[in-house]
C-alpha cells in the first residue's frame, strides 16, 4: 500500500511536468470555461443554468478522454510497462494509478469551476450538493473506465487519438453541453444517448439542479456506473504489457461491450 500511495503521488506530480497533460487537465478546460463559458452566458442567458455542469463535463472529457489513453499507449509503446512488470508491479496497479492521478487533476479543475462560476458569471450553483458530487464522481468514473479501455486496446498513439476524437467531438456537440437536448431532432437525441456525457448532463440537471429531463435522471446515473465498471473490468481483462506479445484477437469487439449500457439507454430511455 505504501508503494501504491508513493506511486500515485509521483504520478500526480509527474503530470504537472507533462505539457500535454497540463494542457488537457488545466489549460484547455479552464481557458474554455473563461472564454467560451463567459461568452455563451452573454449570447444565451439559458446557458447560465447549465454552465457549471457543462464546464465540469468538458473538464472530464478533456482531462480523462483526451489525456489518459495517450499516456497509457505511450507507456506501453516505450516499454515502460515492461520495466514495471519485471520489477513486480501488477497490471491492476498500472491501470489504477494513471486513472486515479488523472482523476485528482480533474477534480481540482472541476472544483475551481464549481466554486468560481457563481461568483464570476453569476450562474446558479447546484441545488443538491451531495447529488452534484455523486453525479460528478459517476461521470468521472464512467469516462475513466472508457478512457482506460481505449488506452489498453489501442496499439498506437495515432489510433488512440482517433478513438479519443470519436468520443470527444460528438460529446461536445451532441450531449447537451452547448445545445439543450430538447432542441435536437429525434435522431440527434438517439445518437447522443450513445455518449456517457449525455447521461451525465441529464443527471446534473435532473438530480443536482432538480430540473426537468427527458428521462428519469437516476437511470442515467445507473448506466454511468455500469459503464464505468464494464470499462475497468474489460481494461483489466484486455490489458497487455507490450505490443509484441501474443495479442488477444477481437480486442476491439470485446471492448465495445463497454458501450452496451449506453446502447440500452438509447433504445429504452427516449
Amino acid at each position: 500500500m505504501k508503494a501504491f500511495m508513493l506511486h500515485f503521488a509521483l504520478e500526480f506530480r509527474a503530470a504537472l511536468r507533462n505539457r500535454n497533460l497540463l494542457l488537457m487537465n488545466y489549460l484547455l478546460p479552464l481557458g474554455f470555461y473563461l472564454l467560451i463559458g463567459g461568452m455563451m452566458v452573454q449570447i444565451n442567458p439559458f446557458f447560465g443554468d447549465q454552465m457549471i455542469p457543462a464546464m465540469v463535463i468538458l473538464t472530464v472529457l478533456s482531462g480523462v478522454i483526451m489525456g489518459l489513453p495517450t499516456n497509457l499507449v505511450e507507456a506501453r509503446e516505450a516499454g515502460i510497462l515492461r520495466s514495471f512488470r519485471v520489477n513486480g508491479l501488477q497490471s491492476g496497479t498500472l491501470i489504477a494509478i494513471p486513472a486515479l492521478a488523472n482523476a485528482l487533476h480533474v477534480c481540482l479543475t472541476a472544483l475551481v469551476i464549481t466554486v468560481s462560476a457563481p461568483l464570476i458569471f453569476k450562474v446558479p450553483a447546484p441545488v443538491d450538493w451531495p447529488m452534484y458530487l455523486l453525479v460528478f464522481l459517476l461521470t468521472l468514473f464512467a469516462n475513466s473506465g472508457l478512457a482506460t479501455l481505449i488506452g489498453v486496446i489501442t496499439r498506437s498513439g495515432q489510433m488512440a487519438i482517433l478513438w479519443q476524437q470519436l468520443l470527444f467531438i460528438p460529446s461536445m456537440i451532441l450531449s447537451g453541453l452547448m445545445v439543450p437536448l430538447t432542441l435536437m431532432p429525434d435522431w440527434g437525441q438517439k445518437l447522443s444517448l450513445m455518449l456517457p456525457a449525455t447521461y451525465a448532463m441529464a443527471a446534473f440537471q435532473g438530480s443536482a439542479y432538480e430540473g426537468e429531463t427527458l428521462w428519469y435522471a437516476p437511470y442515467g446515473m445507473l448506466l454511468l456506473f455500469v459503464g464505468g465498471v464494464l470499462g475497468f473490468v474489460l481494461a483489466s481483462r484486455l490489458f497487455s504489457w507490450d505490443n509484441q506479445n501474443d495479442v488477444q484477437r477481437h480486442r476491439v469487439v470485446l471492448a465495445l461491450v463497454a458501450m452496451i449500457p449506453y446502447l440500452l439507454g438509447a433504445l429504452l430511455l427516449v
Binding site: L10, E11, A14, N18, A75, A78, G79, I80, R82, S83
Partner: peptide, 10 residues
C-alpha cells in the same frame, strides 16, 4: 531490459 524504458517525467 534491452528495450525497457521508464516514465519520462520521473
Amino acid at each position: 531490459l534491452q528495450t525497457g524504458s521508464l516514465p519520462a517525467y520521473f
